[in-house]
Design a protein around this nucleic acid. Sequence first.
RNA 1: GACCCCGUAGCUCAACCGGAUAGAGCGCCUGCCUUCUAAGCAGGGGGUUGCGUGUUCGAGUCACGCCGGGGUCGCCA
Length: 574
Amino acid sequence: MASIFEEVGALVAEAVAALETDGTLAPGHGVTPVIEPPRDPAHGDLATNAALALAKAAGMPPRQLASLLAMTLARAPQVERAEVAGPGFLNLVLAPAAWEAQLRAVLAAGDSYGRVPTRAAGLPVNVEYVSANPTGPMHVGHCRGAVVGDALANLLEFAGHRVTREYYVNDAGAQVDTLARSVHLRYRQALGDAIGAIPDGLYPGDYLVPVGEALAAEFGDRFRASPEAEWLPLFRGRAVAAMMDLIRADLATLGIRHDIFTSEAELHARGAPAAAEARLRAAGLVYDGTLPPPKGELMEDWEPVVLPLFRSTAFGDDVDRPIRKSDGSWTYFGADMAYHAEKAARSSALIDIWGADHSGTVKRIEAAVAALTGGEVPFDVKLVQMVRIFRGGEPVRMSKRAGNFVTLADVVEEVGPDVTRFMMLTKRPESPLDFDYVRAVEQSRENPVFYVHYAHARIRSVERRAEGLALAEAAPLDRLDEAERGLIKIMAQWPRVVEQAAAAREPHRVAFYLHDLASAFHALWNRGNDDPALRILVDDPDLASARLALARGCGHVLRAGLSIMGVTAAEELR
RNA sequence: GACCCCGUAGCUCAACCGGAUAGAGCGCCUGCCUUCUAAGCAGGGGGUUGCGUGUUCGAGUCACGCCGGGGUCGCCA
């Protein structure tokens, strides 16, 4: 069944078409009227700007056009009243039966209410998220991008897209060589060498100790004193594999699993950057040139050098960007460019979730994708701002260099995956987030996780209690009152929330919507505290079954939303 | 210097491709527990949406310019 917005949208479209038929309105105006719930409930259940948007095409004042539309719309059985308001808005009050039908649709669809059937045609949407460097366990800073990316992938699937969840493994370059050297030190340590303090520039974390021990057990002292060239590739491979195991285990604690891990090293091995360079050279977008000296802090060692440059300035970037270094090896950007070209070839759209510290590189990669796909594949980079972690208002320090950083595992262990995921989605990603261990587990209205769980637990409690009662089979939903229909109206917005959150790539909107829905449910529930006749399970079996159906429907929507967020719906809170 | 993000109630934040009188929570004030879980609910007070100009029937939302906070800048990763 169509959502209430689609249903009313169709009615409005019919009314507009009727005006075209009788010549009031010339066809071909290209206007799609917006149907939305008005902010002010006095403006009815739904409002449309159709007359405002079409006034120019009709050559008629908006209010006059609106009253023509109102006359047609008022004849529809779903519409109780159609009123012209303000500059030419058309406010619609729907008949109670229309809302009862919406509740029946929710109950029929169950937890799938609002889900769009998967579109089989075309390539999947690619969401790349986490992509943390394989040099250690995940820290809390990675956590937000991980949750936002995963929830976004869930949301897009719910909205009918096929989705590929992808992780780009930066297993090439200097940092993984550093990792390998750090592991070699731990390997010597495992063989009994006194290694002393970990030198500056190497990774100090204890998590490398077992990696060194495993290598010692397997290879004995074969690489103890041998030249670096003999062990570096081997140690690098083992270290990266071990780090990726750590990272996958961290992600698993949050229920996150990627479909594809793409290796930067393999990308180089199959010559992808060179292929991308050739295409861009042919298009005149890569040339050999010299960069101007960097602005900002003074760079004493800077010297002009001729390098292959990507013409990102043609796409709004400040300067052109080198794709290879003076020694001929690829820059990070050179590989990343090729990687995105490969992803674009197998995707209908690309979405990257990045930490805000990479904001400076967005333009060049957007430029590269536009250049390599001819603008055919939409590409969005969503920047996620940093997380600051607190305990009872006191900042908790983290420092990856010192090796004593707050890990993702620390957070999940302390507050659990559900709270972690929910909290990461309680703000727009582009706002910095303060995460407080104490407040995150607080059981109060102030805590949105708890608040939504509490609503669901109340519904489950009533459902359990109702199991032993003899209630009417088919709930007579016309017994519901105005306030109860108000809850249906909020539930009926769910398909639209899904559609718009998916289009905007903003999973946090689901969290906010669930909070609103839970709030409406709590309000209804509490009427029963003031007046026992307003409780759900009253003596009248017809009325009880109708109210139970309402609560059940609300439970379905709460579970649908929580499943997108990747949060378990609590059965009870004790 | 340049680029990116942010600026909305005392605080933390919303505001659905631009829509009508900008909404929640916290804190403050006033009510509601022999309960279907009061871990909650109802009501009250609180705003020049940082400033300005422009586009529009209509701007917190779009454009441009300022101001303020944060982040970034490299042949790094």
